[in-house]
Nucleic acid binder design. Structure first.
Length: 628
RNA sequence: GCCUUAGUGGCUCAGCCGGUAGAGCGAUACCUUGGUAAGGUAUAGGCCGGGGGUUCGAAUCCCCCCUAAGGCUCCA
């Protein structure tokens, strides 16, 4: 690992002292033989071992010879800063010529390093220096935390330290609250909406952490929706019938939502050949976070979204201006992202997840902006249908912002409440503008759900073209949109919301997503026949119903029905047998209501109107049900 | 990936200065045929996360690994 980083680092050429800082559990070295430029050392310096050490691999370059004092001062400052941050116990200066391709003279280097050592000693720091000019064997074990590997170029300019980590950091984004066309400093905005405040706090990196477990994890297991699968990789779930039902209903929902608006469903492979240049370049942006597959002759990666499949379909299609805009939709069962282990949590962050992915090909920017607005409406609608509150972040590059101020204002106004606006100084990724919708979880942290992005790179990269009325070829602009965000995160949001509700009322899922909509409880065995007949009628009316036929007390069966969040519970005894109305326990209100069967059917039909339906894929009788 | 904490019947947990593995819920059987949030009795169920070590003896002590939660970082 260390070797890889060293090699990469050498490629960052320039002129100035090069240091590579490794916070290590231990460093061990042993001198082997002298070179011509070896410094004289005592016997005890010939080997050394250090625990919890900040190892400073250092190369002195030609340029440093001009202003050695300044270089040393700046290096001392930098090393001291990092030392304080990582809380190491030792500092070890390790001459490492291979960091530079423009080395200074050995004499100058020896002086600078010795000087560096003595300056650090003056600051009472526990510093040691490894001998210069010897061939040495060494062993270093890197701790691996975020600050444990840093590389720096130290220049002679006073207190100017050029930071060169793996990721070149440019200018920072600017954040505003955008409300009714006005930009307001997030720190000065008076928040009526606590969810927006939580989102802003989190985005600006000052969300407080309560150290609690997100409640949806417990609920998803308790309700037998899903569970971890220990025999798979971390972050891959097994889904039980009730969870699978909810997933299927959500899939049906998004399918209808997008196809109603003209998108065409496709299905594409889950793995791609990295020999394809476009795929490789696009995939490289995802860096370490891809699942790779070897085995055969090909180097394959598992898809992290449907982009590749959609782009390949589009680039092989013959598109004309008459076709545009055109949407291609796919539900990625599954998408794969090799998230870091510590980042994987419940339904919120997975390595294998299901993402509705809509790609819309637009002729030009103005067409894409129009489509974008339609998609804002679509995303808003999902929040209403799922009964989840979204807060919105609008992100744009400075250029885009400049040229499309009115549109930005209009897009924000469509949300109908203040939104967080991030302005990026320059384009970092493939998009120039995106809108993210986030639900806020029980612990006040965002769950990133729907998203819309304007992609200005992929058209060209993947060779997607269309013909305009004059028969000229153009690369289109492509919108990426997930109207709900990943199916798992939707369920996550619903469960987190129910945990919040629990403080005030009985938690439940939206009626159209609830596995058991009506639970029928016969009091004694002689009521079972009537109960079953009733259940069959409800089932024929496309209502998910079951019968608790177990020989238990009514009290216990009521309690169990509550535990399953059944929105309607009907108790059947002699009174009902005699033709009286049904007594229905309504979970939402906690009331017992008398009504006829048809009335119950109508209530449910009305509340689930326009939403997808699937039958309950479980035995009608609870006694026959598998306990997962 | 790193730091911290945890892993004991299906679930929630007790036991943990080493000496035969416990409870409640759930499951099964029987009794009870009941009217709105746990009826009664009995029974079964455990490689104490995995591997190695220390010891006459390990759920318990030590080391490594796996898994989970929290934190750091990150979701292009």
């Amino acid at each position: 690992m260390t070797r890889i980083i060293l090699t990469e680092f050498i490629n960052l050429l320039g002129g100035s002292m090069r240091i590579l800082l490794i916070h290590s559990d231990h460093l061990k070295y042993q001198t082997k033989s002298k070179t011509r430029i070896a410094e004289k050392i005592s016997e005890e310096k010939k080997k050394g071992e250090f625990e919890n050490a900040l190892v400073v691999f250092t190369a002195v370059e030609k340029e440093d010879e001009e202003k050695p004092e300044e270089v040393v001062l700046n290096a001392v400052k930098e090393i001291n800063d990092v030392f304080g941050n990582v809380k190491a116990e030792n500092i070890v200066i390790y001459p490492y010529a291979h960091l530079s391709s423009s080395l200074g003279s050995p004499e100058a280097a020896k002086n600078i390093l010795a000087n560096l050592e003595s300056k650090l000693v003056q600051k009472n720091l526990p510093v040691s220096r490894v001998p210069f000019g010897w061939y040495k064997s060494f062993e270093v074990s890197c701790k691996g935390h975020p600050l444990s590997e840093l590389s720096r170029s130290i220049t002679p300019e006073l207190s100017q330290v050029e930071e060169k980590t793996d990721e070149e950091k440019g200018e920072k984004s600017k954040f505003f609250i955008l409300n009714e066309g006005k930009l307001i400093d997030p720190n000065k905005f008076s928040y009526n909406n606590q969810d927006l405040k939580k989102l802003v706090d989190y985005e600006l990196g000052r969300g407080e952490s309560s150290g609690k477990e997100p409640p949806h994890v417990k609920i998803m297991r308790e309700k037998k929706l899903a569970d971890y699968e220990p025999s798979a990789d971390v972050g891959h779930l097994r889904w039980y019938p009730k969870g699978r039902l909810i997933r299927d209903l959500l899939s049906d929902y998004v399918y209808t939502l997008v196809t109603d608006r003209g998108a065409m469903p496709v299905e594409t492979p889950i793995m791609y050949d990295l020999a394809d240049d476009a795929i490789r370049v696009h995939a490289e942006k995802f860096g370490e976070r891809q699942y790779r597959m070897g085995g055969g002759k090909k180097d394959l990666m598992l898809r992290y979204a449907c982009c590749f499949g959609a782009f390949r379909v589009l680039s092989d299609s013959f598109l004309t201006w008459k076709n545009l805009p055109v949407g291609i939709y796919e539900l990625s069962t599954y998408s794969f992202r090799l998230e870091k282990k510590g980042e994987v949590v419940g339904l919120k962050r997975l390595r294998g997840f299901t993402m509705p992915d809509l790609h819309t090909v637009c002729a030009d920017l103005s067409q894409s902006l129009e489509e974008f607005q339609d998609q804002i409406e679509m995303c808003k609608k999902t929040g209403e249908d799922l009964d989840v509150n979204y807060e919105v972040i609008l992100r744009a590059t400075a250029d885009f912002m400049q040229e499309n101020k009115d549109w930005i204002n209009h897009a924000a106004a469509m949300i109908g409440k203040p939104v967080l606006l991030e302005i990026l100084p320059e384009r970092k990724h493939y998009w120039i503008c995106k809108m993210d919708f986030a639900a806020i979880d029980y612990l006040g942290r965002p769950i990133e759900n729907p998203t819309i992005q304007i992609d200005v790179e992929s058209g060209e990269r993947f060779g997607i073209t269309y013909i305009d009325p004059e028969e000229n070829e153009h690369h289109p602009i492509i919108l990426h949109c997930s109207p709900t965000g990943s199916i798992e995160r939707v369920i996550c949001s619903l469960l987190e919301k129910s945990a919040l509700d629990m403080k005030e009322k009985a938690p439940m899922l939206p009626l159209w997503l609830t596995p058991t909509q009506v639970r029928i409880i016969p009091i004694a065995e002689r009521h079972l026949g009537f109960a079953t007949k009733l259940a069959e009628e409800l089932r024929d009316a496309h209502i998910r119903v079951d019968v608790d036929d177990r020989p238990e007390t009514v009290g216990k069966k009521i309690r169990n029905a509550g535990g399953e969040w059944a929105p309607f519970v009907v108790v059947i005894g002699d009174r009902e047998l005699d033709g009286a109305e049904l007594t229905v326990n309504v979970r939402e209100t906690g009331q017992k209501v008398s009504m006829g069967l048809q009335e119950l059917i109508d209530i449910i039909r009305l509340e689930t109107k326009g939403m997808p339906y699937r039958p309950l894929p479980l035995p009608l009788n609870i006694s026959r049900r598998v306990n997962f």
